[in-house]
Design a protein around this nucleic acid. Sequence first.
DNA 1: ATAGGGTTAG
Length: 657
Amino acid sequence: MVSLSKKLIKTLRRPAILIPQFYEPKAPALDLQEPFIPVSKLQETKLLEAQLVSILDSCISLTEIKRVHAHIIRKGLDQCSFLLTKLVRVLCKLNTPIDTYARLIFSQVYCPNPFLYTAIIRGYSVQGPLEKAVFLYGQMRRDDILPVSFTFTALLKACTGVLNVDLGRQIHGQSLKIGGFVQDLFVGNTLIDMYVKCGCLDFARRVFDELPTRDVISFTALIVAYAKSGDMVAASELFDRLPVKDMVAWTAMVTGFAQNAQPKEALEYFEKMQNSGVNTDEVTLSSVISACAQLGAIKYANWVRDFAEKSGFGLTDNVLVGSALIDMYSKCGSVEDAFKVFESMKDRNVFSYSSMIGGFAMHGCAREAIELFEKMMKVEVKPNKVTFVGVLAACSHAGLVEQGQHFFGMMENGCGIKPSVDHYTCMIDLLGRAGRLEEALELIQTMPIEPNGSIWGALLGACRIHRNPKVAEIAAKQLFQLEPDGIGNYVLLSHIYASAGRWEDVSRVRKLIRAKRLIKTPSLSMVEDENGGLHNFYSDDTIHPESKLIKQTLQDLLKRLKVHGYQPILSSAPYDVSDEEKERILLTHSEKLALAYSLLTTSANCVIRITKNLRICEDCHSVMSRASQLTSREIVVRDNLRFHHFRKGICSCGDFW
DNA sequence: ATAGGGTTAG
């Protein structure tokens, strides 16, 4: 500000020598006494303008810009809107507050053209406040200057940024009123994006349908919107209509499937994408990696990692790919590989740390998780709310109640993060797992947030571990209201009753399930063979071509285990039937079938990795544990909650899950 | 100028 001295301002007031490119009719009349500008002089000026533009583009500091501005004034180009617009844009790019310099330049121009106006509006749109951008738009209209489409895109983008859909609609109205602009592809696409980000999918669709022509960007914006709302059918329909599919559009589909728990479709689309000859970048890869994580398919995952390395998005120098890989290896059962990735990364951000901490937590490595968290604080990577979920979960799985409470207290005081319902869920889980059910219940009643399904679910889960039907009933009552269709809750309650031998209550819950026409999620276990092929096993599976052989192998195994002291844990079959029948039911559990299949088909040094969609039962846990000792095999089971590493008869969860 | 971005609990 100070540098713009009075002298400078005086210079600014001097009438322009030449006719600027975008002079409006309202420009002051030329002084006819001025000498006629010869052609050579004009050419010279054009050349100078071009030079100045390129110099402005390379400016990286305010001082440099000011120097160029002084030069512009010296050369008598201080009314050249073209140059000044460029100047304002560069100022904006360097994040110089609009009010300090750009606004002053603007006020010195006699007849600002729409581009200069728009540059200032854009500046305010980027830096805020939005009100000033809107005010300037009003001034522009009062000055009777027609906006350009870029004026609208700038304003709309600002609305999108602060999710102000009301203002967005007004601007939409303006673009209709002035005419022609809603039909502009840029404006149309920005409108779609604004409505999408503000959650007004219907409006977005209407803009899309009313556009005279649409490009791949219009399509992609809507595809993403449908994907985010969980409607992959609508997304696919649009995608099929898209004549030319580019990398971003393909990636939107891959990401959509990955985020909607359809990892197989995600991988399918990734393969189609490559067949269509489109390139792949780190965004695509991170989604593909996330799909692998969900599948627990470590062979495919390794292939994707090699692919990433080959296409120049290696884990060492790409944070996005690296962080996704950490999560993937953790979820595929190899926390060691996850840590290798973490260590080899050049840059690590909050995602990398949070994923690694969460990975340790998932595998029951509480000490490592806490150490990494402390290291993270030391290297000044700011933890976020997800980081804390990881740390608290780690404490919870290891029974470290006091440690957990310490970190929970740290959130608000040390890190300025308000504990969310997720963090309270962790605390309920922490207390509940440790058997402090009454304390957990008390926390629910006194916490400042309305308890949701997760909160009561955590308590109900703890009641299962500690076989407490009394507290379970309190939790279940709330849960059945909050999640009336959550089949898992009913099943859990019936198991708790069963383990207490309360068969009447068990059948009461079963009746409730029938009355609500809920269907039990079928138990599904998955293993990868040595060639990367995936094999699914449902409980009591007779579909698998080798099912007879598998059953025989399982029976042989159990016979051998019994010799070494294994006793079936009959309470894991929550039915009021004879002990023989219970034992028969236990034999049908999908993870046991998967184990037998792996023992049958894989070589002795190969780690057996089983992924299960439901929680592993006590009997299967005991079988896995003993089998790991008897057969000298390493067995890794991922259930819907966490990992169990069975080595030499011992599980990483410490029989506490 | 406008489209795709990873880590979360029971």
